[in-house]
Every structure is written in C-alpha cells, then in structure tokens.
Design a binder for these strands. Structure first.
Lengths: 121, 121
DNA sequence: CGCATACATCTGTATATCGTGATACACGGG
DNA sequence: CCCGTGTATCACGATATACAGATGTATGCG
C-alpha cells in the first residue's frame, strides 16, 4: 500500500456520503435545505413511520449532517455547517441544488405553518 | 406525502453518494482523480485482494462513477463525466480536492510506471 | 398527578453489503 | 493449443442496515 492513500483522510468525506447514500435521508436533507423542521413535519412530508423518521434523523445526526434542538414538545432538526472543507463543499452542492427547487420551498413553508397551534397531523 | 418531495429526483444523487459511501471506493476515486489506472494498480496501492478490488470497481461502474477499457491483458478504469448536474458538481468537488493532493499525484505516477513492460507486482 | 402528544430506543426479521477463497473467463506468448 | 497472467464472478459466512411494531422517555396541560 502506498503512503499517500494510507494517510489520505477520506473518512469524514466517506461518512457524509454514506449518511446521504439513502433516498429517505437525501430527501430529509432536501427539505432541511430550506430551513429547520421538526420530526412530525418530516414524517408527514415523506410519509415515514415515526420510528423510521427518528432512526434516519439519528443516523444523519451521528454523521454530523444535522443537529437538533428541542422546543417544548417538538424537536427541530437543521443542517449543520461542516468543518471539513471538502465535506462542506459537497454538502453545499446539495443545499444549493435543493435550495433552488421552488416546489420544495413552497412545501417547506406549508409544513412550517402546520406546527404551532395546530398539531402536526 | 407532499408532491415536491415525491417527484424530486434524488435517485441519481443518492446513487452516487451510496457508491462513494465506502472508504475503499472513495480511495479508488481519489486515485482515479489523477487519471486512469488498471486493476492491479489499485490492488497494490490500496492493499486489496483481487476479488475485493474487482467487486468495488464493479459497484462504482454500476453506479456510473467509473468506466473501463481493456488494453490487452489489463483493464483500465477511469472516472466518468456525470450527466446529471448535481451529481457532476458533487463528484467535481471530490476530484478537485483529490487532484490537489500532491502525494496522491506522485503515487499515481509511480503506479503508472509499474504497468507495461513490468508486471503490476 | 394522570394523560396525551412528540420523539427516542429497543426488538425482531428481512435484506444488503463486506471480505475471502474458489472458480470461470479473456488475452497474449510460447 | 496449452499455459500463465490479469480480471470477473460465484459461493460462503459475518456483519450491517432496512422497516415495522412495541416500549420507554420527555414535555405540556387539565
């Protein structure tokens, strides 16, 4: 094994790519590209079971792609700024592409309105 | 499920990310960022078993990340230009990052010399 | 408190993926 | 035409990941 490839730090990059190598998680990122959402938003938007949604969010969080904050009953998830340069650029490509999707943006707005006084479903 | 996320075509993007969500395959892409290499090059550079190398290359090929050409006994692999815009940008981030790695470049040159008159190991 | 809602985690099961060794195929040279 | 080398594929066991259902935890409210 040659030295460069041995020392080349591909782990953080691979970690991001592995986390996003799933359609459900990619869709989650697509929605979060427009701003934070709570779990129930994502459940209904992507037609996910509650446990499935939570698990995928846990995977994204473990990979450092998203972070969460609790607001009363709800837990909001958002994309995380990446420290690693290449990782930041790769995720930036996605957020730029998804951010330009107007249909996504309007759905995101609808979802945001669904929480608050009205419960998520 | 909302309309936008249902129709949003994340599959080609996810396919790329899944293919690269593995350290071995990410290292292969890192080496190929400097130009084509044959399987035996990659085996020795990454210390892979023959069958392991072939399988990972097959996965990358199925995902449309690499393509191959046969030259006599050897099969050379190279990165493929991506049609899909976001996919091209994401892969472009990687090739730019890996392309800037000077140690990688020198190892790549060494590998290239190893084939031809001299066998790969 | 007790209860409802939102979320996380556990459990079991099915499927996918990884690595390795054995085998099959392709090509070039004697 | 056989044989060696390089590559692909198959077969196997080990591990990882997927989803759904059940249970556990946290928060807010009457």
């Amino acid at each position: 094994m040659l030295s460069s490839t041995e020392h080349l730090e591909v782990r953080p990059i691979t970690r991001l790519f592995r986390a996003l190598g799933d359609e459900t998680r990619m869709r989650i990122v697509a929605l979060l590209a427009h701003g934070e959402l709570c779990v129930c938003h994502l459940e209904s938007a992507l037609d996910l079971g509650q446990s499935t949604a939570s698990r995928h969010l846990g995977i994204l969080k473990a990979a450092g792609v998203v972070d969460s904050r609790r607001d009363g009953t709800w837990v909001y998830y958002r994309l995380v700024e990446q420290e690693h340069e290449t990782t930041a650029q790769a995720l930036g490509v996605l957020t730029a592409a998804f951010g330009a999707e107007r249909a996504l943006k309007s759905d995101h707005a609808k979802l945001r309105k669904a929480c608050g006084p009205n419960p998520c479903k």
